[in-house]
Design a protein around this nucleic acid. Structure first.
Lengths: 256, 256
DNA sequence: AAACACAAGATTGGATATCAATCAATGGAA
DNA sequence: TTCCATTGATTGATATCCAATCTTGTGTTT
C-alpha cells in the first residue's frame, strides 16, 4: 500500500518504542540498507520520516542517530502530553456518550484483569493504550496523530530513564479520571491527569542507558523475514533489579 | 546548514502558506527538480517532509499534491488549535511574568498601529504572529512546533475558503484574552479563545478555490535566484470583491 | 610521553542513468 | 457512443559514481 520507505520507517519506529534501538544508536545508511535489502536512498527517506517524528536526529555529514532528548525536552514532551490530554478531557466531559464511558471502563477492567492474572507485559501495553483510546474518543484524527507522536516520544524517553514508579496507582488514576469526568467534575480530573504524568516524570532520572545497546542488525532481526512478524516485542532490560524483564516498568507497590 | 531537501521543503511550505501553491496543485517531481535544479531524489525527500507536515499528500504511483483537506479535517485542525491554545493559556495565567504580558500587549499595539496606518498586509501578518508569540511564551519548544504546524495547516485552509469575517474583532479578541488571563479569569479567557477560532471557522465555506492556480514554476519563481529572496510574499487574490489584494482577509467591519 | 599535524579511510549528501510498475490518455473497434 | 487496448508519461526504486566532510590512525615535534 504505502511506500517502502514508510514501511521501513514503521519498523524502525517499532524497534525504537520497543527499546531495541536505544537513544544515541547510530543508524548508518549502508548498514540499514543491507539489513532491509534496499538501496541507501530508501533508507535515507525513512530516516527523514523518523526525524520529522522526533525519534531520530540527522547531523549533517555525520549521519542519523536515535534521538537522545535532553531532560529539558523530556519535561516539555510530558507537558505537551498533559496539555493535550487535559484538553481532550475537557471535550469529552461535555460530549462523550454512555458508550464512550463504557469503552473506557472496559479498557480499565481489561487491564485490571491482566494485572490480577500476572500478565505484566499485557498490562503494560494496555496501560499505554488507555491514553490512546482516551484521545481516540475525541473523534479528532488530527489530535490523535499529535498525541500518538507525543506518546511515541515518551516511550522513547523510557529508554533513558530508570522508571521505578508505582504502576498500580497509575491504573487507579485511569479509573478515577473516568469517574470524575463522567460526573462533570472537570477541574479535579484535569488536575489528576497532571498529577498522573508528574508521578511518572518524578521517577525519572536521566542518567545512563537503561536498555542494552544492540547493533541495528540484532535489534531489527525480529521484525524482518516473514511478512508481518509474529509479535516479537521483547524488551530485554539491562542491569535492573530484575523483575523478570516482563515489561518496561518496575511494579513496585508504594506503601505511600 | 541543513540539507538541501529541507531547504526546498521550506520554500514549498512558504509558497503554500503564501497561497501561491493552492490545494490540489500537482507537485511533479521532474518539474520541481528542474525548477530547483536538483535531482528528483532531493525533491522526493522534500515532498516526504511536506507530507509529514500535513501540507501535501502523496498518492502511490500518482505523485504528490498540495493537500486538499476536507471540511471535516478543517474543523479538526481548528479544534486542535483551540485545544492547544487553551492549554497554553491555562499555563500562562499561572506562570507568566510581567515581561511576558508586556510583550503580548506590545504585539497587539503594533498590530493596532498597522491597522490604523492602513498597512493591511502587515496587520495580517502580525495577527497571525500573535498566536505564535502567545505559544512561544509557554517556553515549550515541543508545544511550539506542534502549534506552528497547526497554524501552517490553518493557513493552507484559507486557500480553500472565502474568509469574510470581521477582522478587527479578532484584534480586540487578542487584547481581551490578555486582559482576562492577567486577571486570572481563566475560564472566560478560554471561552473567548474558543469563540475566536469559531468566529473564523464560521465564515468558512469550503467551496471553490479562492486563489488562482499557478503553475509550480510561476508560483515558485519569486523564491528562487538571489539567495534568500527579498520578501516576495504576494498572495494574488482571485475574483474576490477586490479590496486591493492586500492580504488574505476581507476587512469588513461587522455592524454587529 | 603528550600534543599537534597531516594523510588515509569511511560515510554522508547528492547526481545521473536506468528499469519496472502503474496510471492516464489516446485512439480504435463494436 | 461506449468499451477496450495500446501508448506515453510518471513514479518508485536501484546501481554507480563523485565531492565534501568527518573520523581515525599515524607520524612528527616539543
Amino acid at each position: 500500500m504505502s511506500s517502502r520507505s514508510q514501511a521501513i520507517a514503521d519498523i524502525l519506529t517499532r524497534a525504537i518504542i520497543d527499546h531495541r534501538l536505544v537513544p544515541g544508536c547510530k543508524l548508518g545508511e549502508r548498514e540499514l540498507a543491507e539489513i532491509f535489502d534496499v538501496s541507501r536512498i530508501v533508507v535515507r527517506q525513512s530516516l527523514i520520516r523518523l526525524t520529522d517524528d522526533g525519534l531520530a536526529q540527522i547531523e549533517r555529514n555525520r549521519g542519523a542517530f536515535v534521538a537522545r532528548p535532553s531532560m529539558q525536552e523530556a519535561l516539555e514532551i510530558y507537558d505537551a502530553l498533559t496539555l493535550v490530554e487535559q484538553g481532550v478531557a475537557a471535550q469529552l466531559s461535555d460530549r462523550l456518550g454512555p458508550a464512550g464511558w463504557a469503552e473506557l471502563r472496559q479498557h480499565v477492567e481489561r487491564q485490571r484483569q491482566a494485572v490480577a492474572s500476572g500478565n505484566d507485559a499485557l498490562a503494560d501495553v494496555l496501560g499505554q493504550e488507555f491514553h490512546t483510546v482516551f484521545v481516540r474518543l475525541s473523534r479528532n484524527r488530527v489530535m490523535q496523530e499529535i498525541h500518538a507522536q507525543l506518546v511515541r516520544r515518551t516511550t522513547l524517553l523510557r529508554s533513558l530513564i530508570t522508571a521505578d514508579f508505582d504502576y498500580c496507582n497509575l491504573l487507579d488514576d485511569h479509573a478515577r479520571v473516568i469517574d470524575l469526568l463522567e460526573k462533570g467534575r472537570l477541574k479535579p480530573a484535569m488536575e489528576l491527569i497532571d498529577a498522573h504524568h508528574r508521578s511518572v516524570v518524578r521517577g525519572y532520572i536521566m542518567d545512563r542507558q537503561v536498555f542494552p545497546e544492540l547493533s541495528p542488525r540484532e535489534a531489527l532481526e525480529p521484525y524482518l523475514d516473514g511478512k508481518a512478524g509474529e509479535a516479537p516485542k521483547p524488551a530485554p532490560r539491562k542491569k535492573t533489579g530484575d523483575n523478570g524483564g516482563a515489561g518496561a516498568h518496575a511494579h513496585v507497590h508504594a506503601a505511600k
